[in-house]
């Protein structure tokens, strides 16, 4: 029976290894959030999130990162809005107006999948060189354009996946009532409403966290963002810049800023989760 025993021992070892990998992967998430929490919490204050940088902010004097928080929120909201204005019609077009499963529809979807994986630094580089070509300086507008391009594929692909889950019968029922394709699409959109919010939140999350795209196009400013053609601060960049400072107070602020960004992201993720479970219930 020793052969059997050896095989069973192998099984046990494999199982332990699998459990360990699972634990270490899950633990990495808690480690990241935990470390940022541990380092950032002592530096987090009301002043941090309610004020703009004052004189000497970058050598450790008073002030906050309100400029960056607002800048990021503006940037992400405008980009997400633009991406959904462009992306949702595209998703509808691909599902309602183009013959399903046709070569065209399939290749376009494939292309969006591929675009989804293109890193933001590439978008940033191309936007940057276009801006130089057109003579536009680094500004909120430049950032908005870059981030919109970055988020369109997310919106298109997520909503396309949602439209695919709709039972064909529902489509047929609406069409057989004599509705045009657009009228049918409106019904379908109502059907996947929670899912659309999920898609937009995903895009928003990606938009607010991106650095490489805005680094080249948006610039940085200590003032609250007022005009779209002026440089604007963003939260991830604020973290990045402050972290590279040698002054402990400034570094501390970087940790606190990271914590603020973590909270925003966690808030988005929790909303997404709730909406996603709503969409699931809706289906049944």
């Amino acid at each position: 029976m020793s052969h059997v025993n050896r095989r069973l021992r192998k099984e046990k070892i494999a199982k332990i290894l699998m459990q360990l990998s699972g634990i270490s992967i899950t633990a990495s998430l808690f480690l990241i959030v935990g470390i940022i929490l541990y380092k950032g919490l002592p530096y987090l204050s009301w002043e941090m999130i309610s004020q703009t940088p004052q004189g000497g902010f970058y050598i450790g004097k008073s002030g906050g990162i309100l400029n960056a928080i607002l800048g990021s929120l503006y940037l992400a909201s405008i980009s997400t809005a633009l991406a959904s204005i462009i992306g949702i019609p595209i998703a509808i077009y691909l599902n309602m107006y183009v013959k399903n499963g046709s070569f065209f529809a399939r290749s376009v979807k494939l292309l969006f999948d591929v675009l989804f994986g293109i890193p933001s630094i590439v978008y940033g580089a191309i936007a940057f060189s276009i801006m130089i070509w057109l003579g536009i300086r680094a500004s909120l507008l430049g950032g908005v354009i870059t981030i919109t391009l970055l988020t369109i594929p997310i919106v298109v692909r997520t909503i396309d996946e949602l439209l695919k889950t709709i039972p064909v019968d529902l489509k047929n029922v609406t069409v057989s009532l004599g509705a045009t394709r657009w009228e049918t699409a409106k019904i379908l959109l109502r059907y996947i409403k929670p899912g659309i919010f999920t898609a937009l939140l995903l895009a928003f999350g990606r938009a607010i966290g991106d650095v490489a795209g805005v680094l080249l196009t948006t610039g940085f400013s200590d003032n609250l963002p007022k005009y779209i053609d002026e440089p604007a601060a963003t939260l991830p960049l604020a973290i990045f810049f402050q972290l590279s400072s040698p002054i402990p107070e400034v570094q501390g602020r970087a940790y606190a800023s990271a914590l603020v960004l973590t909270f925003i992201i966690l808030f988005i993720v929790i909303c997404t989760h709730i909406l996603a479970s709503k969409q699931k219930k809706h289906k049944i």
Partner: peptide
Amino acid sequence: FVLPLMNVLAAIPPVLYGVWGVLF
């Protein structure tokens, strides 16, 4: 329990990974 946590991990922006990398 675990799969939604993976979504959280996916949602964390690169700069926070960077902060974690520098600190830890």
